[in-house]
Each structure stands twice: as structure tokens, then as C-alpha cells.
């Protein structure tokens, strides 16, 4: 059962009066300002829109069932990727990850996808495309990525932690292949009862891409040990392949 209109009204009224000292070093505070039905090709969801005190970025949570006040809620934290999510780019696997996450939460009674409007890990679409441009010219270095503004994910985790708090989620099962995400969210007070591998179903077009990505040694290192652009995607686990 999703949230009833009465539950939605109660949440919005409580959220309107929400004030807090903020989460993390950046003192991030968010508030739910609207909740609406979102029937989708992946299932019947509701979507909650968040205001935040740091910038004009409008983050959303996609809800399946009613995760409010519940334990062990499956949660996926996804960062916006226009080229992947909307345009189907094969430079990353963001869309595959998002679709898999939406299918997963739809298959559970309750679940959440936090969709953070932080294109390119906070560097913005313009700089992400400038990084792609440099990659096209064969330049892909840590220094270049730093100069373009790739930065630590601290704020991303603070926002996610606060969104979970606003949604009154008591504990989560985090869908991720990235242990650091677990550590960071736990550090910010999120109770994580399990980390569940986020497994993507390969298809004929992306199997090679996914398997190549999986087989590369480290998170931001390519096969030659050269640091590469930290895409939004994570280490990949592919159905039927050795992890």
C-alpha cells in the first residue's frame, strides 16, 4: 500500500515546519514539499520532491509501497546522469543501474530510489561533457578531472542521509556494490542492516561494456592502472558472471 492522501497531507504539514542544524560538514537540510503518484513502466510508484538549503537542485525520492517508519527498506542512491538516464549513453551504465533499481524496488513490498540531481558527481553537465571532450582527445587524468571540478561525494551522502531521515526510514538494505557508500551513510547516522549487490541484467548491447567494466581492477582505475574519469556508475556485477 502506498501513502494515502491523508498520510501525504500529514507528511507535508510536518515537513513545512521542519528545521534542523543540517547534516554533514556542509550542514545540508532538505524538506519534502510535494508527494505525487507516479505510475511508470517499472511499477506503480509515488514520487517525493525535496527542497534543499544549499542550492537550487531539486532532488526526488521514488517510493514503492510505504517505506515510512519501516525497517529493512531496500534503497538505491542514484545520481542524475542526463546522458545515461535520458539519452541512453553507453559511456556509462547509469541508465542500466537506474532501471535495475526501479525494477528491484517494484519487486519488493516497500522500497526507495533516491534520485539526486547531481549531474556528473556534482560537477554539472557542462563539466562532465568537457571531461568527455578531453577523453575523446586522449586526455584522462586525475589532474584534469580535478580541474574540471570532480570532487568528493560528501554532500551527496549528506543529502541522501537527510532524505532518508525525512522519509522516516528506520533502517535500510542498501543496493550498492560500493562499500564506501555504506561507510559514508553509516557515518552520517543511517542504519544499514545489509548491503545488497546491485546486479545488472546484461543484454546483447551492453554485455561487453559491463563485463569489461567489471573486470577492471579498481573503482577509478582502468585496465592499465591509469586513473580514469570517475563516472557515476559503480563496480558492476553482472548476472551470470563471476563477481
Amino acid at each position: 500500500m502506498s501513502l494515502t492522501p491523508e498520510q501525504i497531507d500529514a507528511v507535508l504539514e510536518a515537513e513545512a515546519g521542519h528545521e534542523c542544524p543540517g547534516v554533514g560538514e556542509g550542514r545540508v537540510c532538505v524538506k519534502i514539499v510535494s508527494i505525487a503518484e507516479l505510475p511508470s513502466r517499472f511499477g506503480r510508484f509515488q514520487v517525493a520532491a525535496f527542497w534543499n538549503n544549499r542550492d537550487g537542485k531539486e532532488h526526488v525520492a521514488i517510493l514503492h509501497g510505504n517505506p515510512m517508519g519501516r525497517e529493512n527498506v531496500p534503497v538505491r542512491v542514484h545520481s542524475e546522469c542526463l546522458t545515461g538516464d535520458a539519452l541512453g549513453s553507453l559511456r556509462c551504465d547509469c541508465r542500466d543501474q537506474l532501471e535495475a533499481a526501479l525494477r528491484t524496488i517494484a519487486s519488493h513490498e516497500h522500497g526507495l530510489v533516491l534520485y539526486l540531481r547531481q549531474e556528473g558527481r556534482g560537477i554539472g553537465l557542462l563539466n562532465k561533457l568537457r571531461a568527455y571532450h578531453l577523453q575523446d582527445r586522449g586526455l584522462d587524468t586525475v589532474e584534469a578531472n580535478l580541474a574540471l571540478g570532480f570532487r568528493d561525494d560528501e554532500r551527496e551522502y549528506s543529502i541522501a542521509a537527510h532524505m532518508l531521515h525525512s522519509l522516516k526510514v528506520k533502517s535500510i538494505r542498501l543496493l550498492t556494490n560500493n562499500p564506501r557508500k555504506v561507510d559514508e551513510l553509516a557515518r552520517l547516522g543511517v542504519k544499514i542492516v545489509a548491503r545488497e549487490p546491485h546486479i545488472l541484467p546484461p543484454n546483447e548491447f551492453n554485455r561487453f561494456y559491463l563485463e569489461t567494466k567489471r573486470d577492471k581492477s579498481g573503482h577509478f582505475l582502468d585496465a592499465l592502472g591509469k586513473a580514469h574519469l570517475p563516472e557515476q556508475g559503480e563496480p558492476v556485477q553482472v548476472e551470470g558472471g563471476a563477481a
Binding site: 560537477i123 563539466n127 589532474e143 580535478l146 580541474a147 574540471l148 571540478g149 570532487r151
Partner: peptide
């Protein structure tokens, strides 16, 4: 405007 990089560069 908009073509600035985010920070200085060291090699």
C-alpha cells in the same frame, strides 16, 4: 563566463 576550470592545476 562558464569556461573557467574549478581549481588550479599542478603537474
Amino acid at each position: 563566463e562558464g569556461s573557467e576550470l574549478a581549481r588550479p592545476v599542478v603537474a
